[in-house]
Design a protein around this nucleic acid. Structure first.
Lengths: 231, 231
DNA sequence: TTTTAAATCAATAAAAAAGTTGTCGCAGTT
DNA sequence: AACTGCGACAACTTTTTTATTGATTTAAAA
């Protein structure tokens, strides 16, 4: 049986992403030799919270959402993972297991790179390492914002944050809202689905947003930012 | 934040499964120390075809289906994974990646055991190793049957095989059929969903089976076995 | 070539999941 | 004690997914 997933037309793809451009030919070869490509279908887990992690993932194409799992069926959505981003870096550098789950919200073309290889390349190439750390830090910075929201704000503020965050992706991914259910929105805001539904209706009533089927258009940014700030 | 998934009441569970009973206290400790428990929710992937595998999985509780992926949205179901079974052994012994996907069809309580640990224990404990190989072989033997079906039989025979296989699990897991969709059945038989639907109706008409909602009751085993043999 | 096996397509029906809304109750605040 | 914020539940509607059926096309086998 011939290898299957790797043979899709669009799938043959080298490591062209900007973050790999700074590698020397030998380093690039190291990565290329050890990497694996996987097509995650919409709904597939890229990472599973608690599972052993011997590799990091680099998303070539497609969108995923990253979340932490609580008791059964309760999640907290952290962020949308975009093409060009790494998933599971912390698993490479520190812990041996993924500390969050992530799931493809569209089909995703993904590289898997074993952590020994990443470690090797970082040690050889300081610039690449610096870049890696920068990425990791910026993910962390966002985590702090998320934490702040989760700890201190209440429904309106949380939902405003969620809307502003997702809207910031809309330029690049116009259908971002269509890809998310009300439960997803609720899980981003950390509130119940029902509350999310009601809040969105309220926001619409107050002319802060417009709801078009699943799509959401932000109308009054200033006010939403205000709500976000007030909490 | 405290560890979450690991704290469910039912989830605290030691390695009581028969296949670990033959380990010496030290060996058991080795496994216990390195293992991780993960709760896979219904629909989560336990393994993803093509992904790096640094561990094997041991299912404590719950059912999963194992399948190979073809082009997008076409799968071929191989088997139902039951509690007490290992998943991904071949990844441990030979390949560095999973050569099939698997997905939980009910919530699944699973151990992950790193392959270095399994290797270590096998080297120390011949009986355990023998048992492991036995399991691996029996999985393989089934694979040959599956292959034979896939290569040589046509619709009726394939569906008969599928029915006989699934029915053989029914004593232990009475709701096995309810857990599977017609597409799943089709993917087991390696035929289109529509063909599966029609075939099942035909079988019902011929008094080989009874369809009760999603449940299927085999009526005429002899004839089904005959159909399976004829192909 | 004719027959047969089975996938694909299209249309529809049925079932399941997602979304919506109102009501209630609880736990903190004021 | 009254108020606020928000989750939980129940009833209901809408949307999406799954199942079913017949007609058509393709491909292989006889």
């Amino acid at each position: 049986m011939k290898p299957i997933l790797e043979t899709d037309k669009e799938f043959i793809c080298d490591i062209q992403a900007p973050c790999f451009q700074m590698l020397s030919p030998e380093e690039a070869e190291l990565v290329r030799a050890s990497k694996t490509q996987v097509l995650f279908r919409k709904g597939d887990n890229l990472t599973k919270q608690g599972a052993f992690a011997s590799y990091a993932l680099f998303v070539i194409k497609g969108l995923a959402k990253q979340y932490i799992e609580r008791d059964s069926s309760k999640n907290y959505n952290l962020r949308i993972i975009q093409p060009g981003e790494f998933v599971g870096l912390s698993a490479v550098f520190t812990k041996n297991t993924f500390n969050y789950s992530s799931v493809a919200i569209t089909d995703c073309q993904v590289f898997l790179i074993e952590k020994v290889v990443i470690t090797e390349v970082i040690k050889q190439n300081g610039e690449f390492g610096f870049n890696m750390i920068r990425r990791y830090c910026s993910q962390n910075a966002n985590l702090f914002d998320t934490l702040r929201t989760a700890l201190f704000k209440q429904m309106n503020g949380r939902m405003a944050d969620t809307l502003l965050y997702l809207d910031s992706l809309k330029f690049q991914y116009p259908d971002i809202f269509q890809l998310l259910s009300r439960k997803d929105m609720a899980d981003f805001a950390g509130i119940s689905t029902e509350s999310a539904v009601k809040l969105l209706k309220n926001f619409e009533k107050d002319n802060l947003i417009e709801l078009h089927e699943k799509d959401i258009v932000l109308v009054n940014y200033t006010e939403l930012q205000e709500i976000s700030k007030k909490g």
